[in-house]
Computed example of a mutant assay.
Amino acid sequence: MFLENLGVDALDPLRLGRFWEAALGTTSLTVEPDLLETRLDLDGTAYLDLCFVRVPAPNQAPLRLQLALRGGTEQADVVERLRGLGAEELDSGHGGQPRGELADVEGRAFRVRGEQEECVDTGPLAAVLLESADPERDAEFWAWLSGWAPAPDRGAHTLRHPSLHGPLLELVPERAPKRPDAKNPIHLDVRLEPGEDPEEIAAEIERRGGREMHPDWGELPWRVHQDPSGNEFCVLPAPAVAP
């Protein structure tokens, strides 16, 4: 398995997806009225896709997965550029100095990090922050699920792609328990490798504290699960093997 997607609920996938393409410098894969997929290249062979999918109504559930962009010593300039793309600043900080808390064009919060050593070589997307009831437990779960490796030099309960390129995946303490009736507005997707058995993977997810969900979303080519803290994720089928 490998971590392939960030799935993002969107009222207007084209508008929201174009904002994030400009913010991160990603490359379009699929552009349709109800779907925009764009690729963040990690090292020329590995990637992370952002998939903006139309939803019929705003998802007001608490944001348990948040994006953090790299600002570094140019944090103020990055914030200003994002404002020019349509982002709104949420908190100007002490004395009018930017703190990097913004909202995208659909009002969803994200961060621009300042000068932090652990983010100097991540690329434009510094980190993906996922709330957890038990960060140590869930870091182990996501390391197994995603194929990303622990990166203790970058912070506690932090994972990174084995290439050592791209963003960090940080398991952070949750502000409140996950509401069972509230779907995360942003979620992670993993994809099976050829030869991996989806039934065996589903059983192992259960053994490690997750669970499979059976939402009434019609026929789906993937399976929906929750991690031990209740965060949704999808397990996508392995790509077809050419004959």
Rank of each mutant, 00 (worst) to 15 (best):
L42F: 06
G209S: 12
R113C: 12
A127C: 10
L129C: 14
A22T: 01
V79Q: 03
D121Y: 01
D9V: 00
E204H: 11
V128M: 12
A103E: 15
V55M: 06
T73Y: 02
W222V: 04
L168G: 02
E204Q: 15
S229C: 10
A68R: 07
A22L: 07
T45G: 12
P135K: 07
P13I: 00
S229L: 05
L188N: 08
R108A: 11
T158E: 04
D91R: 11
H187A: 01
F233Y: 14
G195D: 08
H94I: 03
L14M: 00
T27Q: 13
A176H: 11
L42H: 06
V78S: 13
E32M: 06
E131P: 13
S92G: 04
L50H: 07
F110N: 01
N231L: 07
D12R: 02
V79G: 03
P239S: 03
D77I: 01
F110Y: 09
T73L: 09
E140H: 07
E170K: 12
L90Y: 15
A149F: 10
R39L: 13
P152T: 05
C234T: 10
P237S: 07
V120Q: 09
D34A: 14
P180D: 08
G93L: 00
V190D: 11
R191N: 07
E74K: 07
L85S: 12
V172I: 13
L164V: 02
G218K: 05
H165W: 05
P162F: 08
W217D: 10
R175K: 08
H187P: 07
A240K: 02
G210Y: 13
L36I: 05
V241F: 06
E200G: 01
A242L: 10
R39N: 11
A103C: 14
E4K: 11
A109D: 05
A103H: 14
A202E: 14
H187K: 01
C51Y: 15
E199K: 09
A149R: 14
G93D: 01
R137V: 03
G155N: 00
G86D: 14
L220Q: 14
C119F: 14
A149M: 12
L236C: 07
G84V: 12
D104R: 06
P180H: 03
D104N: 10
L63R: 09
E170C: 15
C234W: 02
P221S: 01
A22C: 02
C234L: 04
R81T: 11
A68C: 12
G17V: 04
T38G: 06
R223I: 10
N231V: 05
D34W: 14
R154C: 15
A143H: 09
A202D: 14
S132N: 05
Q75M: 08
L3R: 04
